[in-house]
Design a protein around this nucleic acid. Structure first.
Lengths: 187, 187
DNA sequence: TGTACATCAGTGAACGCGCGTTCACTGATGTAC
DNA sequence: TGTACATCAGTGAACGCGCGTTCACTGATGTAC
């Protein structure tokens, strides 16, 4: 089998991507080394050639999940707050935690994570707020909009029935659009 | 030792209260039977006289944590949205997840809990929205306010430094107050 | 360009540990008379 | 009211299992000559 250095980098990348998706879809605590390595097509013994420990992997996976989410947000970031909210609070995003925003997916769990992980997520929260800032009246409303988007996505995923989940998303989408001072200035 | 029926009810109550506090402070997955029974002053073998399984305890503990949080909210619910936000988004609440709102404390984890647990939390979200409804312009803004409060408390707890955490709480408190149509009607 | 060998990515068995759960047992409780 | 006994809450040892981690080994890689 190919055990080249290039292969190793690819393998590490695959492990990390799978871990980042897993923690968003199934939570941090349920991430186990052996099943993860299996999913990556490797045996569990080789794990420690890539990461010092499970904790080190988790820290790296959180960073990766944050980057994933930020990349998705950048791709979708539109020219108005309504557009941002429409994308962030979409049914698609609600149904795809594994590829979506890490803040919403593992927010309450990260509350209890390492300081480094929490700092990384805090930085992304700040970036999210800064991205929304141009569209609203002041800093406070930027924090409000971001809190509401992260909160609403989390709440929507709690509802067991899809209709209620979608109703919450729609309600907050509509309400957030009224905070857009740019749009309000238009005729 | 007193093994009376009254004692048993007290013991079950103590176990459940400890579990409800634990899951809010340290997460659902980290709840383990033996340490919990130890904290309750009992040995772990007796656990199954009170609950059918760890999963059954978790379901009961989530319900209890929701009730705790609702009781706290009812005690603090004031005559304006600003008052509600001031209490919910207080430093005190941020620092005391074990006795506070379960939606914020275990929101992202509950996303992956049993349907019954999710339904119970969904009911409380609906109640929270209904409680805020009288103070805002429409249903959508009630959902916005609740999403923002739950979201902001979660975000604040992610920040490793207290000042940033408090700044987010304050920003969202201030912004939410502007949504209060009752207060806006005042001179 | 070709050969010899050190390196090292990945293998898979083995380890110790913590956990959920079971169970035979103990002794106080509370009921039947 | 007092005694005899069935009940049952709690005990603590034991179980099997999954998990994180280690390690001796394998065989392809890539470098030195």
């Amino acid at each position: 089998m190919g055990h080249s250095q290039a292969q190793k980098a690819e393998n590490r990348e695959r492990i990390l991507a799978l871990a980042a998706a897993h923690i968003r879809a199934h939570g941090i605590d349920s991430l186990a080394v052996a099943p993860l390595m299996d999913a990556a097509g490797l045996t569990h013994g080789g794990f420690y050639g890539h990461f010092a420990s499970r904790d080190a992997l988790i820290a790296a996976a959180i960073m990766r999940a944050l980057d994933d989410g930020a990349a998705g947000a950048a791709r979708a970031s539109g020219g108005s707050l309504g557009e941002i909210a429409r994308s962030y609070l979409s049914r698609r995003h609600r149904e795809s935690p594994a590829t979506g925003c890490a803040i919403a997916a593992i927010g309450s769990e990260t509350t209890r994570a390492s300081d480094a992980s929490r700092a990384a997520m805090a930085a992304q929260i700040d970036a999210f707020i800064a991205g929304v800032r141009p569209f609203v009246a002041d800093e406070d409303h930027a924090a409000l909009a971001v809190s509401a988007m992260v909160g609403a996505l989390t709440l929507a995923r709690i509802y067991p029935d899809r209709d209620s989940a979608d109703a919450v998303l729609k309600a907050v989408r509509t309400a957030i659009a009224t905070l857009d001072t740019q749009a309000a200035a238009d005729p």
